[in-house]
Design a binder for these strands. Structure first.
Length: 510
RNA sequence: GGCUCGGUAGCUCAGCGGUAGAGCGGGGGACUCAUAAGCCCUAGGUCGUAGGUUCAAAUCCUACCCGAGUCACCA
């Protein structure tokens, strides 16, 4: 069943001083597939953006000889190009330095004060200047920084800050998790957060007074960067003014995040919203890490990040999108390599799908001058009847791989239909009615595939659509378009270049 | 160290009480519309180890081994 409610999905906002790596592309692409699928059933909205405050940014700006604002302005364009580079379309891109965001943060802070959930306290602990991190006493190694690559002396710091009475929300959060386990998926992340909740929550410092690159508070100091960052999900909708009515229409939304930030999104953020008397997110999904073949995490700090732009250059955005969502269950870690990418590209995309389109249109060209025949007594219709709802259910539950498995069953079905019906023999023996029936089934089946694959591979699905002789793009409502027989007879098809040209392994020279 | 999740065919994984499954790779076959693609057949793996419960266990319980994650106010 298509969902009725407007659908709102967010990615995390990316920390601006980093460099985009394959993990950012992964989150972005998955979010885009969700939003595009939702949009095929009704109103849907996607949000991404950048997180621009914090001491690290301030330090990096100083090192670059710029003001923090100049510095983040110089970096923001790089992040804006990330989504378009992978054919991901978001309705909005928020930067936490924008006035609309600043206003929302201060408004939320004020609401929480009114709830008596914000109080002044002293924030202190052992601080490592190099890592810019406070460490609990128990973590110190010989009284020094526990980071194995640091091990410098730590110093005792204390500053007066605002605290959020997070402890007050332990029970409400436990109730939430127990009554609505689907709030956080997958299960393994849910278990971890439950363990944290059962251990108990401590109040949480939400301002800083030792530096000033953040959202300034009326009485001095700035908001802690995470407190500020989480609010982007509603500030981008126009809360609290909501002049455009977006907040009223789209909140609460769904958050897609990486597993490392589940705590912020499923404990701190809901508690903040509860405190302010606002609805909490409807769902949070924490996906896994992409690793290299050696099994090491790919991240900025390890210096082995695969450049997503280079990978796109070699395989194309659609092929990469397909690989990332087909290769592993969404939520698990998985490894990526050029060889695996090539394997998927050649086998699934080139051999199965691309070749299916080409051989189908080639026969239509040869036997019917490229004109779609009248529909006949085909066998494919009944086999695909459940496919749209099945695919939609899988995608909306973050089961991208299962959705693609279902779609590929139909790719295989159509390939098998050709081999079983042998159109070349039907043609030779002038069995015109049967030949028409098979050719129609193939074209209509391919039209369905184009529509269903559009969220995953927008450009290639559109190219399929074009070769099938259809106008516009397959970005259409499924309940109207996924009706068997909608493809009109006498449509003039346009066979074209191979959809996914084979990519040969590099020739090794000795 | 506590807790959590995994350890199933060469690879990636599904199965989660009833005498072992899929995809890919590998091997064989019949065809020709097609990107030498597609289709059909084929994999005989002590389901991490050792016990236990049961008429019956990858599937439940216990212990252990191995791997990963998490227990941080760094985004």
């Amino acid at each position: 069943m298509p969902h009725q409610r407007p659908f709102y999905l967010t990615t995390p906002i990316f920390y601006i001083s980093g460099t985009p790596h394959i993990g950012h592309a992964y989150t972005t692409i998955a979010a885009d597939v969700l939003v595009r699928t939702a949009r095929a059933h009704g109103p849907a909205r996607g949000l991404t953006g950048t997180d621009e405050h914090g001491q690290k940014v301030a330090n990096a700006a100083a090192a670059a000889g710029m003001t923090p604002q100049q510095y983040v302005d110089s970096l923001a364009p790089k992040w804006r190009t990330l989504a378009p580079a992978f054919d991901a379309h978001f309705d909005d891109f928020i930067r936490t330095t924008e006035p609309r965001h600043v206003r929302a943060c201060l408004a939320l802070f004020e609401r929480m004060r009114i709830s008596d959930d914000v109080y002044e306290g002293v924030y202190e602990g052992w601080y490592c200047t190099n890592d810019e991190t406070f460490w609990p006493e128990a973590k110190l190694v010989d009284g020094r920084c526990p980071n194995p690559e640091c091990r410098r002396a730590v110093q005792w710091l204390s500053e007066k800050n605002w605290f959020f009475r997070l402890s007050k929300y332990q029970q409400p959060l436990l109730d939430l998790f127990r009554t609505k386990p689907e709030f956080l998926r997958p299960q393994t992340r849910y278990n971890e957060m439950m363990a944290i909740l059962e251990e108990g929550l401590e109040d949480f410092s939400i301002s800083r007074s030792s530096f000033d690159w953040g959202i300034p508070l009326p009485g001095g100091g700035v908001l802690y960067v995470w407190y500020d960052a989480l609010i982007n999900y509603i500030s981008a909708l126009g809360w609290p003014e909501d002049a455009d009515g977006l907040y009223a229409r789209f909140w609460p939304g769904v958050h897609l995040i990486g597993k490392e930030i589940a705590r912020f999104h499923t404990i701190i953020w809901p508690a903040m919203l509860m405190s302010a008397g606002l609805p909490i997110p409807s769902r949070v999904f924490a996906h896994g890490w992409i690793t290299s073949d050696a099994g090491t995490k790919i991240g900025k700090s390890l210096g082995n990040a695969m450049d997503p732009f280079a990978m796109r250059g070699e395989f194309g955005a659609d092929s990469l999108r397909y690989f990332l969502l087909r290769e592993a269950p969404f939520g698990s870690d998985f490894s990526i390599s050029i060889e695996k990418l090539r394997q998927r590209h050649n086998s699934d995309l080139g051999n199965d799908l691309g070749n299916l389109l080409r051989r189908s249109l080639a026969m239509l060209q040869k036997y019917r001058n490229g004109l779609v025949p009248e529909a006949g007594a085909g066998t494919v219709q009944e086999r695909v009847a459940d496919l749209p709802s099945l695919v939609n259910e899988h995608v909306m539950a973050f089961r991208f791989r299962e959705a693609l498995d279902e779609i590929w069953n139909v790719v295989t079905l159509l390939n098998r239909t050709i081999d079983e019906q042998k159109p070349w023999e039907l043609y030779k023996h002038q069995r015109e009615v049967e030949l028409d029936a098979v050719l129609y089934d193939l074209c209509e089946g391919l039209r369905w595939l184009s529509l269903l694959l559009f969220p995953f591979m927008p450009a290639k699905a559109t190219e399929m659509w074009r070769q099938l002789g259809l106008a516009g793009t397959p970005e259409l409502q499924w309940n109207e378009e996924l009706v068997w027989g909608r493809l009109a007879a006498n449509t003039q098809t346009n066979p074209g270049d191979a959809l996914f040209p084979r990519i040969e392994p590099p020739v090794l020279s000795s």
